[in-house]
């Protein structure tokens, strides 16, 4: 079974975010980047699936040169090879434009299964996987916790709202978006890091976007506060004393 895992590189969760001077995106200088966390779970699911059922795991990422570090990390964790779609203009492409870039690379590989995280930590649109499946004309399922091979295709465990789940049977090829937390993430071993150096990364140039983006991100800004927050300061003991005061006389739970 040939599995492609589509991953994204995003700012690290703890990164200090500054709004760019043009007010349309964040300042990318001095930012540290990491694999999008849900995509790390998609990679883990792919690696475990391969360990059980055999096959090949290919990691795919679109972005500027810096994303090769995230691809290398994925190779060190056990992916067999990598595809880098070199594109410096992802911010000018909307979800459909990015999914089209991915679709070209995926089609060339004819995989049996495509996995990706359910959403990105930066834009959070939660759509690239579903749009990619639609462009490829293959079935998809979202927010998946477990994947099992069956005689006719796959049985997946899909998370619903309020603690409900559902199994879904589906044919291959298929695309799944993976929920965080279904598996324990592995770390790269020293051996894995060493092996990654000899693994292949195929770089392909991004085609120019065929159409204008349907959506425009006009402005980014700090959210307005929904409540007036009283900030408490002092030593831990002073803060604790103030909080107890509030708990007693304002919130009235003591």
């Amino acid at each position: 079974m040939k599995i492609i895992v589509a991953i994204k590189q995003v700012p690290e969760r703890d990164a200090q975010i500054q709004i760019a001077a043009n007010g349309k995106w964040i300042d990318e200088d001095d930012l540290t980047y990491a694999i999008n966390e849900p995509d790390a779970y998609a990679l883990e699911e792919a690696l475990q699936f391969k360990e059980k059922n055999g096959g090949e795991v290919i990691v795919l990422c679109a972005g500027p040169e810096r994303v090769t570090s995230t691809l290398r990390d994925a190779l060190a964790k056990g992916a067999d090879r990598a595809i880098h779609i070199e594109a410096d203009d992802l911010a000018q492409r909307d979800t459909l434009g990015v999914a089209e870039l991915l679709a070209v690379a995926v089609k060339a590989e004819s995989p049996d299964l495509i996995l990706t995280g359910l959403q990105s930590d930066d834009l959070g649109l939660g759509q690239t996987g579903v749009v990619l499946a639609e462009l490829l004309g293959i079935p998809h399922a979202t927010i998946i916790m477990q994947v099992e091979k069956t005689d006719t295709g796959l049985r997946v465990k899909r998370e619903l709202e309020d603690g409900w789940f559902q199994h879904v049977d589906m044919p291959l090829p298929a695309l799944l978006t993976i929920q965080s937390g279904g598996n324990k993430l592995r770390y790269a071993t020293l051996m894995g890091i060493k092996k990654a150096k000899s693994k292949e990364t195929n770089t392909i140039a991004a085609a120019d976007s065929s159409e204008a983006a349907a959506l425009k991100l006009a402005r980014v800004y700090l959210p307005e506060k929904q409540k007036k927050t009283v900030m408490l300061t002092g030593t831990p003991e002073q803060i604790a004393a103030q909080l107890v005061e509030k708990l007693k006389f304002e919130v009235r739970v003591i």
């Binding site: 709004i19 964040i26 930066d122 649109l125 980014v220 959210p223």
Partner: peptide, 16 residues
């Protein structure tokens, strides 16, 4: 919409 887990807000417009 919110970006970066709620750290920022973003205004989106459809151009199509």
């Amino acid at each position: 919409r919110q970006l970066l887990q709620g750290k920022l807000n973003a205004d989106y417009k459809q151009t199509a």
